[in-house]
Design a protein around this nucleic acid. Structure first.
Lengths: 160, 160
DNA sequence: GCGCATTAGTTGACACGACAACTAAACCCG
DNA sequence: CGGGTTTAGTTGTCGTGTCAACTAATGCGC
């Protein structure tokens, strides 16, 4: 089958999307590391735990909410545990499972990091867009996600 | 100053954008590695060279076109050079500069990889969007880039 | 209730990117 | 034209992610 090459509009959108994907993580990491000694991914892990009931989640559930593999999450949680921000304990209901719980120190870390992080998010993304574009971005990213992650492992729909 | 937290629409757009940013690179890498033994970044390097006059670019120019630091590019070009896909030579005009040139083998590699890559790009992004959304995405990503990269080191505007 | 497949998670080896230190050439300016 | 600054690029080290191999508990089928 002959390749359908990209036309100008498609190429333009693609090139720019790639640039965003390459540059955005670095910017988020840099700010969080500088101000709060956390990588962006570590922040995400702590933030997801902070919103969960009793601040506890099973590793698998946490991996899904952070778009990570279990292996990656396991390494990161080990480091966070060593820093006293998270605690692991075997799940009583299922012997195979592990629960990760946010400690008080972990809670303090997220609470401390959140304002600066939100400010960065506004600064580099949201404030650059109109209200309409923010809504569009939500829809576009949602559409892409259904292709990237057909099984919907990721962040479940609008509902939280 | 009190933090302006994100409202529902903003949070939705942000969470989804983060998910895209986390998942997209992996999908692109996986396809290219499987079918062409190239990482996405390596592909980008070769592709940018393939479009340049005489298939030659100075390292700095190549770094800008691929949104990479010079250090990262230098490592990657070393590997590509070891595989015979790229050649380095000192720039005659400027003794500090290095020119990277795409070899014939490198050309063959990009040409071989391009169709599968474009198909993936369509599959995971472009075909998930309407024509209008593709245009919107271009504008939104462009707006974000002016914040991520205020000096415009990155891909220059529509113009090539 | 035994055995095999599946699910949950961890771990170790390797690959790659970031950062900082370094070399070297060019520019600049008095 | 000589010394300091800037620009271009490379390299070594370290942190972090990926992959594959592994352990262990669960659940299904008969």
């Amino acid at each position: 089958m002959d390749t359908r090459w990209l036309d100008d509009e498609e190429l333009d959108a693609w090139i720019r999307l790639i640039a965003v994907v390459e540059l955005l993580p670095g910017v988020l990491d840099t700010q969080l590391r500088r101000d709060s000694e956390l990588s962006h991914f570590e922040y995400l892990v702590l933030a997801m735990l902070s919103e969960a009931d009793d601040r506890v989640l099973r590793m698998t559930a946490l991996a899904a909410r952070t778009n990570a593999t279990l292996a990656r999450l396991s390494h990161v949680v080990s480091r966070l545990e060593a820093r006293g921000l998270v605690e692991r304990s075997p799940c009583p209901q299922d012997g195979r499972a592990t629960n990760a719980r946010l400690t008080d120190a972990g809670w303090d870390a997220v609470v401390g990091a959140a304002p600066g992080h939100v400010e960065t998010v506004r600064g580099v993304v949201l404030d650059a867009l109109t209200r309409r574009q923010v809504r569009e971005l939500g829809e576009i990213a949602g559409a892409i996600l259904t292709r990237l992650d057909p099984d919907g492992r990721m962040t479940p729909p609008p509902r939280d």
